[in-house]
């Protein structure tokens, strides 16, 4: 008996046919390649970044990108750099850090930190947020939704009531409450679970509670969709058939329901990921982002928006990268959606 819905006339398996269709979509492939490259750069950030993200040089503050020099006569721009407040300290010798202008391909921020390096390290936060949001959404939402839909009746009713209540929570208020709560006090005085959580959070540069904040709400939509799909699958012949064969609940869920649900759920998730990434930006804006000096795209945008007219490059790069990343997720997601949809004609 076949597990997946098989209404294809060709002998080819739906999975390989999906892969083929995906590969024929150039936008989807480009999106996937971009994401893979980004993940590699983020993972091996120390090898790709020219400098450490915290290395500063107050004499290179707001240095324009060396990249600009390639397009316009070179030296003129570099000579101008950020040194507009020619006051007494300018005469002093710069304290240490490298003075090689070519190091700053994308320019520098308010304290002369290399933007390219910060962008590369910052990718870790955005990708981690996307991954964790999606992970929790799948692990919790999918299972929850299938269980509710599969068991049905009173249990389903009660489970969905919980989702309703959580759905009605003002997400941001809850996220802020949780983050303020956990970031209050000092780690030295924490005990038990709070201490452990805090250690993890510090190790992650303050990302843990961003994950928690995004995680608590990301799975709700998924739970709803998964439940709905399960309900509609339950009526299908192959499920009733499997039931007649006496397959247990667990087997039913893992072997029959899950594989059929995956398609629509993956599509839903790729549409939600930009939301997670943007939530991190918002949290940075209200001061609940990662701990400085650890960079994230959100905190970089937040540092740059007020200087949009003076130093547009500070905000330009993180916005461009963020947009490109969201675009990539969308194209890959759309490609996946088209590839997995059995009803789409060739």
């Amino acid at each position: 008996m076949t597990v997946t819905i098989s209404n294809t006339s060709a002998g080819e398996s739906p999975r390989s046919r999906g892969a083929r269709r995906f590969l024929r979509n150039p936008a989807a492939v480009a999106g996937l390649v971009f994401l893979a490259a980004l993940a590699a750069v983020a993972l091996f950030a120390p090898y790709f970044a020219p400098q450490h993200y915290a290395t500063d040089d107050l004499f290179s503050d707001y240095r324009p990108p060396a990249l600009y020099g390639l397009f316009s006569g070179g030296e003129r721009e570099a000579a101008q750099d950020g040194r507009d407040s020619a006051q007494d300290t300018s005469a002093r010798q710069p304290p240490g850090a490298s003075q090689d202008a070519s190091a700053y391909w994308l320019g520098a921020d308010f304290m002369g930190r290399d933007l390219l390096s910060r962008l590369i390290y910052g990718a870790r936060v955005s990708l981690a947020v996307a991954l964790v949001g999606a992970g929790i959404s799948f692990a919790l939402g999918l299972l929850y939704g299938i269980t509710a839909g599969y068991l049905g009746g009173r249990i389903d009713n009660a489970m969905m009531r919980v989702v309703d209540v959580l759905y009605a929570m003002p997400t941001l208020v809850v996220v802020i409450l949780i983050m303020v709560y956990f970031r209050a006090g000092q780690p030295e005085h924490f005990t038990g679970i709070k201490a452990t959580l805090y250690r993890w959070d510090s190790a992650l540069g303050g990302m843990l509670f961003i994950f928690v904040g995004i995680g608590i709400t990301s799975w709700l939509q998924m739970a709803r969709i998964a439940r709905g799909e399960t309900l509609s699958l339950k009526g299908r012949d192959f499920i009733t058939g499997a039931e007649a064969l006496g397959i247990g609940h667990w087997g039913m869920i893992t072997r029959h329901l899950l594989p059929n649900l995956l398609g629509p759920c993956i599509v839903l998730e790729t549409a939600s990921i930009p939301g997670y990434i943007l939530t991190e930006t918002f949290l940075s804006f209200i001061g609940l982002g990662v701990n400085p000096p650890m960079p994230s795209w959100g905190s970089m945008i937040n540092e740059g928006y007020q200087a949009m007219r003076s130093y547009p490059h500070v905000i330009l790069w993180p916005v461009l990268t963020l947009t490109a990343t969201v675009l990539a997720f969308n194209f890959a997601g759309d490609g996946l959606r088209d590839a997995l949809d059995p009803r789409l004609a060739e």
Binding site: A54, D56, L58, F110, M111, G287, P292, P293, N302, E303
Partner: peptide, 13 residues
């Protein structure tokens, strides 16, 4: 606050 954050990071360095 963004401005306290900037100052603190510079002084830290």
């Amino acid at each position: 606050s963004e401005s306290h954050s900037k100052l603190a990071q510079v002084v830290q360095q």
